[in-house]
Amino acid sequence: MERTNDSILTEFVLVGLSAHPKLQTVFFVLVLWMYLMILLGNGVLISVIIYDSHLHTPMYFFLCNLSFLDICYTSSSIPLSLDSFLTGRKRVSFSGCMVQMFLSFAMGVTECVLLGMMALDRYVAICYPLRYPVIMSKGAYILMAAGSWISGLVDSMVQTSLVMQLPFCANNVINHLVCEILAILKLACADISINVISMAGSNVIALVIPLLVISLSYMFIAAAILRIPSTEGKRKAFSTCSAHLTVVIIFYGTIFFMYSKPKSKTSVGTDNQDIIEVFITLFYGAMIPMLNPIIYSLRNKDVKAAVKNMLGRKKSLMDYK
Rank of each mutant, 00 (worst) to 15 (best):
S7Y: 10
I8N: 12
I8E: 15
S18M: 10
S18H: 13
H20K: 02
L23M: 14
T25S: 11
F28T: 03
V29W: 04
V31C: 13
Y35W: 08
M37I: 07
L40Y: 11
L40Q: 08
G41N: 02
L45K: 06
I46A: 05
I46K: 05
V48L: 08
I49C: 03
I49D: 02
Y51M: 04
H56I: 03
N65S: 03
F68R: 15
I71M: 14
T74K: 08
S75D: 07
S76N: 10
S77F: 07
I78V: 05
S81F: 05
L86M: 06
G88W: 08
G88L: 04
R89D: 03
K90W: 01
S95K: 12
G96P: 02
Q100V: 03
L103I: 12
M107R: 07
M107L: 12
V109E: 00
V113P: 12
G116K: 01
M117F: 06
M118L: 04
M118I: 01
L120W: 01
V124A: 01
V124C: 04
I126A: 07
V134D: 13
V134M: 08
I135E: 10
I135T: 09
M136R: 00
S137H: 09
K138C: 00
G139L: 07
G139V: 09
L143F: 15
M144E: 03
G147L: 00
G147Y: 00
G147M: 02
S148F: 02
W149N: 09
G152K: 07
L153M: 08
L153P: 09
D155L: 14
S156N: 07
M157C: 13
Q159V: 11
T160M: 14
T160H: 09
L162P: 04
V163W: 10
Q165L: 15
F168C: 06
F168R: 09
N172L: 02
I174C: 13
N175G: 03
C179A: 14
A183V: 00
I192R: 11
I192S: 08
I194E: 15
I197S: 14
M199N: 14
A200C: 13
S202W: 05
V204C: 12
I205C: 00
A206C: 10
V208G: 09
I209T: 11
P210E: 06
L211Y: 12
V213P: 06
S215E: 01
L216I: 12
F220R: 15
A222L: 06
A223P: 09
A224F: 04
I225W: 11
R227Q: 15
S230A: 11
S230V: 02
E232C: 01
E232I: 05
R235Q: 11
K236S: 12
F238H: 05
S242F: 04
L245I: 00
T246S: 15
V248Q: 04
I250A: 11
F251L: 08
Y252Q: 01
T254M: 10
F257A: 12
Y259W: 05
K263W: 01
K263A: 10
N272V: 12
D274K: 09
I275W: 06
I275M: 01
E277W: 01
E277A: 13
V278M: 07
T281Q: 15
Y284K: 10
M290C: 14
L291Q: 04
N292R: 13
P293M: 05
I294L: 15
I295Q: 05
Y296Q: 10
R299Y: 02
V303R: 05
A305G: 09
M310L: 11
K314G: 11
K314R: 13
K315M: 14
M318C: 13
M318G: 13
